[in-house]
Nucleic acid binder design. Structure first.
Lengths: 205, 205
DNA sequence: GGGAACACTGTCATTTTTATCAGGATATGA
DNA sequence: TCATATCCTGATAAAAATGACAGTGTTCCC
């Protein structure tokens, strides 16, 4: 089953309309766009596309169109990006967001229900964990396990550290020899565990 | 302007319907779901939500509803993930995709029109560029500039290397002392330039 | 106590949209 | 050559959906 040139034009139109307006075009709008004298032309094209599995139609519903693979795509979560997390975080107050990072749950490996946020990394204290200045790390609010990378609140600023647990105590360690090692974890507030990282060409690397 | 409990219920319904069906519910469907005796109740709720800026309505259009912030979110591009890229790539043949990486254009910094694909990194030949085994790197098909990280085809396998240009020649260099340095670039096919990186908790790090 | 937003009922006109029936013309593969 | 798919016209019925008008209470704030 191949898609004909005309059918591809229809698909492109559906896609661009949906991107721009947020809703699918009606058969009449398709008709007008292509200059069909009859609205039936649009209908039969949609039928053909449905038969080929490109679109799914919900019968009896206005604009009841959907790209079949759109639902197949993993759901996308919007992760808010915070530059720095204020001290009182967690107590209902929503810190200022510097933007949004939208990724599908599959490629990041976080569940959609998890409480996550992203942090813009400043400095190179975690360079040996291959986390660079300008990277965005995705933090999930949960209990850290040994050797997890965690976001911790130190002196009012959030920094990334390696969480290390020996037989007795818990420590936080920077992954850079230039930074002081081993900070007792008891005195600190651990805000979450790193579960992902996004590096972009605009992220300065 | 606060959202009332009832209005939040409406929002939740719109959202869940849109997720499930791909299209927005009509006023009648809202009416039926909440058990309103009158369809006007649904209409006035939508008006209230529009006034508060939650949704945008396209008047005179069936199911002409959209969450205002959905369009504010940067458009999302679907980047196909390839494990290994066959030799003849570029000649119309679409290599097998191992899945999809969906990211908004802003956080990655790639334009939606650019030809991009993602590659799962194997090995640690670029560890000093802080690219780890299991990472997904986003490759854009364009001409490399000096010191760009590029995807190159060597012996039928795609590998990442640093592109270095001195006064006379172009070389490819691994970012790991254990790997052989300096491969003449002329003999190789450079497939694209790294523009982004995604590391997930399922990506083994 | 008055005004305003909220959360509805009930009715009705109008527009928007789907859907189907009956064709015509032109390809393309068995 | 016959069947089948493509890509259309033209007309018409029916359904889906919006939109507007006139009300009824309630709550909350000034």
């Amino acid at each position: 089953m191949k898609i004909t040139a005309r059918q591809q034009e229809i698909i492109d139109f559906l896609q661009s309309e949906h991107r721009q307006t947020g809703i699918m075009p009606s058969t009449r709008e398709i008709q007008e766009h292509f200059g069909f004298a009859s609205q039936t032309a649009a209908v039969s094209h949609l039928k053909a596309l449905e038969k080929k599995g490109i679109i799914t139609r919900l019968e009896g519903k206005a604009r009841g169109l959907r790209f079949t693979d759109t639902l197949a795509r993993e759901p996308i979560i919007d992760i808010p990006i915070y530059g720095a997390i204020p001290a009182g975080y967690g107590d209902d107050t929503t810190p200022e967001s510097e933007g949004c990072l939208s990724v599908d749950v599959n490629s990041m490996g976080v569940s959609a229900s998890a409480k996550t946020y992203a942090l813009r990394v400043r400095g190179d204290s975690m360079i040996n964990a291959h986390i660079m200045d300008g990277d965005h790390v995705v933090i999930e609010q949960k209990e850290p396990r040994n050797h997890d990378v965690v976001a911790a609140l130190i002196d009012g600023e959030t920094t990334l550290k390696r969480y290390v647990k020996d037989s007795k105590k818990c420590f936080l360690r920077a992954e850079n020899p230039n930074y002081p090692d081993l900070i007792p974890a008891q005195e600190l507030m651990i805000q979450g565990v790193m579960v992902g990282l996004v590096r972009g060409s605009n992220g300065g690397w």
